[in-house]
Design a protein around this nucleic acid. Structure first.
Lengths: 381, 381
DNA sequence: GTGAACGGTGAATCGGATG
DNA sequence: CCATCCGATTCACCGTTCA
């Protein structure tokens, strides 16, 4: 890869009216600087896909500790600080407009975010005339827990996929290939992918994570395989640790990276240099079926397989518990999960409530595991 | 159920300053009319939870056909037509403000939507000072396919859960019950639930679906079980086919329904009349650790479970403190609460002394939390 | 060599009562 | 408004150490 470019390159568009030639000098490079002036220096209508991972505008206050007193290493970088929603909205509109100018009429744009910012981004997209094609949910297999027990575990992020205009036709969506790689069924709008951890996660000299929000390559692979073709130009205006560039190179796409922080840009360059492009034929199908889905006891109630107020017993019909509406069971005055209460009545430390507790099915007792199997079949179907 | 009410009831707030009494006349009824004037006639700060399924502002043009040329029976009601994003935003802000007024300070609000409208709703929520607690993804097990093969299968909808203000404290979140009903793990922000089909789906006289966007009862059950208590007042300003009311009644909550379409309201009323509430025992909130009575460390000494002059240690028996008669402990020359001294010896900022400190029980070490449990049992008896 | 046990950690708007 | 205090709270995965 060639050297990093510094500053803008406003002269590029002066030299050529042919965008496809003028863009060439920008390709497969990381431009160090702010996105908006650098985008302004690029030829118009020259990129095929935009992937953007903008600051989320998290509004964190004190430090958060785990129950074991260790400190959560949260995002506290300056780039994530905005004075107000208005300031964040102005920033969002500015980069979206700059990105829109360099998009080909057939180009599409992806943005990723969380509930802190994604609603503002989505509304701005619509206000600026982008046409939303899908929102896509990245379900994390291994999200961070909620340590205080005050909310639901924040287990997903949201991507928005949008065309440049309502009337834009001819955008790339590799429908058949995606379907073929997904057990011959359409790819859904929710994707189950692990966080970026282990060897994939870039580390600094002290072994700490280099970038606070490095995205998994599997996520970018799905994005690029679904909405771009080999040879297409992929723009990432918030390049960070360079996941977009690494995946683009591996999948035979060209990229334009823009990153404000020279340290991140340098790390990304080294990372991308180490990537070997895949042979064209070997682009692996990416969608895999997950193993047997975990079924909550409350799902049996939600689906009407058990009624609140019903009675469960052990296999001999001796001790009885009451099924409650919230998916707990009650024994005497004690309420808890099927597992905890099963352990309690046996005086054991642990118990598999699925096999311990039985319900009356006609004249006989049947383990509630049977009902779980029914739900699993539905989920698999 | 009593008769449907027509029109607003602006007089209610004139008769009483006590919201809990003034709201009584509004409960367990469907008010036929527009949400905003009807909400304006309700007493302020009188509801515990709001669930809203507003029009989605779908921008469908022309009929959608399946590959076999059959027509998809999509949403084409007048209530879903808005001239522009601006009109939709104004509508959204108006009903959100009207709902905010009737919410208690501790109330929370749920809104469900799709990518057509949810970004606008989320941004409006933030602009109006609501504080987003989670966004929750409803993953449909059986979504409609994308017939054209031009996008990902739209397999989810998004719910936003928000408190009335950033500083609102004390909202209901039944953390422990949810966890106990979910294999003893935290409930995530993505919920897998089937569409409303089969017998649950209301039909009109011709056997066609009565309402285009009837939500599954399982979804509402999860919403109400997580964020409300029995007896709480649940407001639904877009009542539609009455799923919120049916589930509220079944789960022992009160409801206020508002619906513009008299036909939907009548169907909802009949539906709710047919619901039998669950037995109270299957609903009663159970005592969690959080609301167990507070026990002072000194109570252990007062009850003779620990003697002044006794020694406590950490779980490994390493560092020792002396129990004093006043309920403090002494480490070297430092005296303080079990929590302070526990933090001190670990060099931590905070410490739960109940689980940190141990006493000798026969040959083994046991946490003093065990003694607290004994006191609590005495208090409960 | 193998497996159990243990430690570390990830985009986090993460408490409530009292004075 | 702020300071102080009590005390409640974590899931999945990866890498290392130890038996």
């Amino acid at each position: 890869m060639r050297q990093l470019r510094r500053g803008t390159s406003a002269q590029a568009s002066r030299f050529s009216l042919d965008s496809s030639a003028a863009i060439e000098s920008h390709l497969d490079r990381i431009h160090v600087g702010d996105s908006i002036p650098i985008l302004a220096g690029m030829p118009p209508a020259s990129v095929d896909v935009v992937f953007a991972d903008p600051p989320y505008n998290l509004q964190l206050e004190g430090a958060l500790k785990r129950p074991d007193e260790s400190v959560v290493d949260a995002v506290d970088d300056d780039w994530d600080k905005f004075a107000s929603f208005e300031a964040y909205d102005a920033f969002t509109r500015a980069w979206l407009l700059a990105a829109k100018r360099v998009m080909k009429p057939t180009a599409t744009l992806w943005v990723i975010g969380s509930y802190h910012n994604i609603f503002r981004v989505g509304a701005a997209l619509q206000d600026l005339g982008f046409w939303i094609l899908n929102d896509v949910v990245w379900r994390k297999t291994n999200p961070m827990p909620n340590f205080r027990g005050t909310r639901f575990q924040n287990a997903h992020e949201t991507l928005i996929w949008a065309a440049r205009d309502k009337s834009a036709k001819g955008y790339t969506f590799n429908y058949e290939a995606l379907k073929a790689g997904n057990e011959d069924t359409q790819v859904r709008s929710d994707w189950t992918i692990p966080l970026c951890t282990g060897a994939e996660r870039l580390k600094d000299a002290h072994g700490r994570k280099l970038h606070p929000t490095q995205k998994p390559e599997a996520l970018l692979a799905r994005v690029l395989l679904s909405s771009s073709k080999p040879g297409d130009v992929v723009l990432d205006p918030f390049f960070g640790s360079g996941t977009t560039g690494a995946v683009a190179k591996r999948l035979g796409r060209r990229f334009v990276g823009i990153e404000r922080d020279a340290g991140y840009a340098a790390a990304a360059e080294a990372r991308i240099d180490a990537v070997t492009p895949l042979p064209e034929a070997s682009l692996a199908p990416f969608a895999t079926k997950r193993d047997a889905p975990r079924v909550a006891f409350s799902a049996l109630i939600e689906r009407g397989l058990l009624q609140p107020g019903a009675t469960l017993t052990d296999k001999d019909g001796d001790c009885e518990v009451l099924v409650r509406a919230d998916g707990t069971v009650e024994f005497g005055k004690v309420v808890g999960s099927i597992h905890r209460i099963g352990a309690l009545v046996q005086g054991a430390e642990a118990c598999n409530g699925w096999t311990f507790w039985h319900y009356a099915d006609g004249g006989r007792l049947r383990a509630i595991d049977h009902l779980r199997a029914i739900v699993r079949q539905e989920l698999a179907a």
